[in-house]
Amino acid sequence: MAGQRSKWLWLLIVLLLPVYAQLHTGSWAQRAELRQSQSVGFLVPSQFSRVLACGYKGLLADYQFLRILTFFGDRSLNQQPPTAEDWDYFRDSIDVITDLDPWFYDPYVLTEGLLTWDAGRIEEANALLAKGVRYRTNDWRLPYYIGFNNFFFLKDHAAGAEYIMKAARLPGSPSYLPTLAARLAYYGGKSQTAVLFLKQMLAENSDERLARRLQLRLLALERAAQIEDALQCFRHDQQRDVVKLSELVSSGYLESLPEDPYGGRWGILKNGRVFSTSKFVEKKKTDVE
């Protein structure tokens, strides 16, 4: 009798298992969809999270950082360009993370890697980096980033030189920093400057997702720099500017116009800098004319 009953129980379990499996997959699929459509995650303001961490501030910072990494990882995996809201979330997250543990270096790297190039929010990035400078007093990289941002994005050469010199005085800074300041001041917004900077960032970065972005950008900038070099030669030889970039190919300064890895079309700004219609932002489809 008892054996009979347990046989029925087994049968019930076997019948229920596929239902469970179905619901399990459904639930996970729903979650994945939800995470994609969610514009921003929740964030506990730092005054509260510092209290709620209950003595595990460092660990909470690590966790929060992993969350923001996966959030932007998901976005780039799904080829969804982050919205302005996403960038607000990013900035606030980094702010909370660095309030929890202001010595944590990774969030500053991520800020410099994303918030400047991708979001164009240079002032916000600089404000976050300045917090790092206050705490990581012996780290030359943070003032170096701020200096670069001032030079390259904000065209504030005075402030840029000041930060780079500050970085040069800190232990462990590369010996080329003092001359770099001078070169940055000379080249200003030229693509070659950014190439140098990105190479340095890539050299000390191990996160693959960030590295992939940086490499793509580096490639684009190298090509832009190549065109800029050709332009300069052209100007030097012909004593005039090109009208269209294709002139560089037809007159033999370039074998062919390199392709923008972001899929945009090259153009020339009035100050002689080369730009791309893609603005070096990854897009699902290039619908820019």
């Binding site: 003595g55 595990y56 460092g58 660990l59 910072a61 690590d62 950082f65 992993l66 990494l69 543990d101 010595w103 944590f104 270096y105 990774d106 790297v109 991520l110 000390e204 970065n205 191990s206 996160d207 960030l210």
Partner: peptide
Amino acid sequence: AVAGFFMRDLGKVTVDMNLAALSF
């Protein structure tokens, strides 16, 4: 397992987790 997810401050994350494990 998690250490590899971070970019630079692996030492920090490791110490964080170790001390958290001990204190918890």
